[in-house]
Design a protein around this nucleic acid. Structure first.
Length: 886
RNA sequence: GGGCGAAUAACUCAGUUGGUAGAGUGCAACCCUUACAAGGUUGAAGUCACAGGUUCGAGCCCUGUUUCGCCCA
């Protein structure tokens, strides 16, 4: 496709796939562990193999891709390690559901057969998200893609388990844990979502042994009463000070339970009498331990009442609640029922109400690990960005509970613990043992539980790089440079990676943790299927292109603030992509006349200016990406591209490009415009990889991929130098042109009408600038004549603007509307007067003159002088107009 | 109950050691000027949530209040 047939509008379809394939095929995403180049590594937060790309993933991976692509452009050896996690419970749920459609339960299959089914599912439909990440443009090193159930990662899991066990940091114990009766597994505390919900607080009378009176307990969960083994009172509670009874009868049963006293009881809540159910409530469990109470499990693993519930045996737990309440009411034990909002735990995978339950499980003793992990952040070995999150991190680390790691499911890393059937010896081994190392028996039984998925993801930064082998990859890339994630998995994942990384690698897993916000809908509401406000990233990409979508995410990703996404916003940035495309189209059109030729002596102000701005912008973009300020980087690039390069420079360059300034100037300007366009493409590439590559290829001045280019400004380039004097001069030219345009617009002068303008200034610099750039001013303000003089008589029948020290007179012989011009000047004067009042107020304040720093005072004085001059000139002109009109 | 964050133009948001408020979208007017109407030019629009305080000076720092959101218990 030749450049003159470049389409008028940018259409991303087809182009994105083409370049993605090109990059992959040519190894542009590959890291090199043997290289001496500066390494830069990021490990991806592994999405679930069950997952599909949502807005959160899109933001997360766009940010990582921006960082990685930027670093490659800086010449670093970048490793972006991709992969997925096996998502034990979620995956098992899906496969079970699929089996259920065929009328098969997992228990009808053998464990091995079931796991085969899961692998089959994984091969067939798992990991769809990986291809979706590719649509987004993610430049991961796909050849290194890992999965938490891979052989290598499984070895790492085993080694870690065995070592922690031998260090007594893993133990098995009978504790109260969170049980999901639907998934039929234990959950860690973190895997329980607490939701506020409307419930009732039931007041139930437990009669005294003697038969007279009784204690009224208050509970939201009457069905657990069958597991009560005491009623607790606060020893300081005046209401029960004189109570001599020692036992109460448990209604609906024939059991008697003791009355105990413990400070834990909250005298404010309910009646101050607390029913104690050690087997079904975490607080009661600890209370029970202190008082040596019996624990009676009355709800089984399916959420069904056990025979401990007497006649309610076999009922589902919530049905039992209903039935028990009816019975209590019928028998006169239910004293009252009041509405109450309370927080109820739900399984984070299936939303079933979690049952706290006494159970034998495996735990990690996290205290010592957490301390090191917290210290690493305190000592600055790892930075959390934005810094505020470190407080949340410390809060959790300092109050951490042991981590329940065993799950009663089949899909996952099976716990490497064997018990000898003959002698009861327990073996914890990296390699499956064949015989008991104590009695030699071959009758060994392996623990049936698997490990929490997060146990394996905790090892991700080093297990993916080949640990426990001492690989070259680890040597080159560990610790990684940055981890990019949402705050929702700060505890689940980041904290645990910190613990494991420090413990097993003796080094933090990453130097920076960048926490980004959530993506919400345009009104700031969390996206959810039930609300119907979910925007599918893939549909957005289909409609607007990945580049526009990525740029939108980046532009709104301000630190510490949620990203509010709406298609309108993406459309706005789609227009930006198109703008860039057309700037390139324009440039290409001119490059067809032949390549540019640089000659520094022939550069005029706009060329020097755009080169200076190009350098300033590149620096700003670079700096902002390095400091995780993606919105600032995006807006600096946007502002420059659209409003400096396209709006001003391209327009200013047209006469030269169309040959009106001679062949030499034409060549020089071609050289400048292609240089600036190239720089712009490179600095935009991290945000918009596809369109920048497409344009890069079309440019006759470039070769290879934009991915092999160097970020502008990081290598010496005599053309790319910031020159603030040049920028100041150009500002004056802009002011003059805008002043004339304003007059044209407010006086309703058609654009086709050429104007005559004279300018007067005493300022030699301003005069020089105008004279040197008169052609540009004439062109951009559409003038047929422009003269610059010393201040003198104002031309008659003209409208006036004042810019810095320059008075501009737009000659409007015969067309001037004096009323309109007077109104226009009035407005200008009002504006200036308002500013002048504010400035003068400050300068008339003696304390200000005395106490403010000198440079500030000088600056304000300068402003005042400028405003006064402007004011005077405007008034003079207003008088003149009034005189002529009057 | 503990913690974190937000409140700035009609909307969505920026705002770097305090020096007197900006952008995008939207809105209004004009314009098919040979890169782009997915465009150009010009313009209107703000008691920076409220109340105190520190300071010559506060959107920014301090204290309190209100409203909203999130996390933990």
């Amino acid at each position: 496709m030749s450049s003159d047939s470049l389409d008028k509008g940018y259409d991303p379809s087809g182009i994105e796939e083409k370049w993605y394939k090109y990059w992959v095929d040519n190894g542009f995403f590959k890291a090199n562990e043997e290289s001496d180049q500066k390494p830069y590594a990021i490990v991806i937060p592994p999405p679930n193999i069950t997952g599909v790309l949502h807005m959160g993933h899109a933001l997360n991976n766009t940010v990582q891709d921006i960082m990685c692509r930027h670093r490659r452009l800086c010449g670093d050896n970048v490793l972006w390690m991709p992969g997925t996690d096996h998502a034990g419970i979620a995956t098992q749920n899906i496969v079970e559901k699929n089996l259920a459609k065929k009328g098969v339960t997992r228990d009808q299959l053998k464990r091995e057969e079931f796991i085969d089914e899961v692998w089959k599912w994984k091969e067939h439909s798992g990991g769809a998200i990986i291809n979706q990440l590719k649509r987004l443009g993610a430049s991961c090193d796909w050849d290194r893609e890992r999965f938490t159930m891979d052989e290598g990662l499984s070895d790492a899991v085993r080694k870690v388990f065995v070592r922690l066990y031998k260090e007594e940091l893993i133990y098995q114990g009978l504790y109260i844990i969170n049980w999901c009766p639907r998934c039929k597994t234990a959950l860690s505390d973190l895997e329980v979502d607490h939701e506020e919900q409307d419930s009732f607080l039931y007041h139930i009378r437990y009669p005294f042994e003697s038969g007279e009176g009784g204690l009224v307990v208050a509970t939201t969960r009457p069905e657990t009463m069958f597991g009560d083994t005491a009623v607790a009172l606060n020893p300081n509670d005046q209401r029960y000070q004189d109570l001599t009874e020692t036992h109460v009868c448990l209604p609906l049963t024939d059991r008697k339970i003791p009355i105990i006293r413990d400070d834990y009881v909250d005298t404010e809540f309910g009646t101050g009498a607390l029913k104690v159910t050690p087997a079904h409530d975490p607080n009661d469990f600890h209370l029970g331990n202190r008082h040596n109470l019996e624990s009676i499990k009355v709800i089984d693993d399916d959420g069904i009442m056990t025979d401990g519930a007497g006649r309610f045996n076999g009922q589902e737990r919530f049905e039992c609640r209903k039935q028990a309440l009816e019975a209590l009411e019928a028998e006169g034990f239910l004293v009252k029922k009041e509405p109450l909002k309370n927080s109820v735990g739900h399984c984070y995978r299936c939303k079933t109400v979690v049952e706290p339950s006494l159970s034998k499980q495996w735990f990690v003793k996290v205290g010592p690990l957490a301390k090191e992990a917290a210290d690493a952040v305190r000592e600055g070995k790892t930075r959390i960005i934005p810094e505020n999150w470190s407080k949340t991190y410390f809060e959790w680390m300092d109050n951490i509970q042991d981590w329940c790691i065993s799950r009663q499911i089949w899909w996952g890393h099976r716990i490497p613990v064997w018990t000898c059937k003959d002698c009861g010896k327990i073996m914890v081994e990296e390699v499956d043992p064949t015989a008991c190392d104590s009695c030699g028996s071959k009758e060994l039984v392996q623990e049936t539980d698997v490990l929490d998925t997060w146990f394996s993801s905790a090892l991700w930064p080093f297990s993916t790089m080949g640990w426990p082998e001492q690989t070259q990859l680890l040597k080159t890339f560990y610790p990684t440079n940055a981890l990019v994630t949402g705050f929702d998995i700060l505890f689940f994942w980041v904290a645990r990676m910190m613990m494991m990384g420090i413990h097993f690698m003796d080094e933090v897993p990453f130097k920076d943790v960048y926490i980004h916000a959530l993506v919400r809908d345009e009104h700031g509401k969390k996206m959810s299927k039930s609300k119907g406000n979910v925007i599918d990233p893939l549909k957005v990409i289909d409609q607007y292109g990945a580049d526009a979508f990525r740029f939108t995410l980046a532009a709104f990703a301000a630190q510490g603030r949620d990203v509010k996404m709406s298609e309108d916003r993406v459309e706005g940035y789609r227009n930006f992509v198109n703008k860039l495309w057309n700037a390139a189209r324009f440039t290409l059109m001119h490059l067809e006349k032949g390549p540019g030729e640089m000659d520094v002596s022939l550069l005029s102000l706009p060329e020097k200016w755009i080169l200076s701005r190009s350098k300033a912008t590149a620096d700003a973009v670079h700096q902002s990406i390095e400091t995780f300020k993606f919105n600032e980087a995006a807006s600096a690039a946007y502002q420059f591209t659209w409003h400096e390069f396209c709006d001003w420079y391209v327009e200013a360059a047209k006469p030269a490009l169309y040959g009106k300034e001679g062949e030499k100037r034409c060549r020089v300007v071609r050289a400048v415009i292609s240089e600036v366009l190239e720089n712009t493409l490179v600095m935009l590439h991290p945000f918009m990889p596809f369109v920048t590559e497409e344009i890069w290829e079309k440019l006759p001045t470039t070769s290879g991929s934009v991915m092999s280019a160097r970020f502008p400004g990081i290598e010496d380039n005599e053309l790319l130098v910031r020159d603030e004097a040049v920028e100041g001069d150009m500002e004056h030219v802009f002011g003059v042109i805008s002043g004339i345009r304003n007059i044209r617009s407010t006086m309703n002068i058609p654009p086709s009408m050429q104007l005559g303008v004279s300018m007067q200034t005493m300022d030699a610099r301003e005069r020089r600038i105008i004279e040197e750039n008169h052609a540009m001013i004439e062109n951009l303000a559409r003038l047929d004549s422009l003269e610059v003089t010393e201040p003198g008589e104002a031309p008659p029948s003209s409208a006036t603007a004042v810019v810095n020290g320059t008075s501009i007179y737009v000659s409007l012989m015969g067309v001037i509307d004096f009323d309109k011009e007077a109104a226009r000047l009035d407005k200008e004067i009002a504006k200036v007067t308002k500013e002048l009042v504010a400035v003068s107020k400050r300068l008339n304040n003696e304390s200000f003159l005395e106490k403010a720093p000198e440079d500030v005072v000088e600056k304000v004085k300068g402003i005042q002088q400028g405003l006064e001059e402007k004011n005077d000139k405007l008034r003079e002109n207003l008088d003149r107009i009034n005189k002529i009109a009057g």
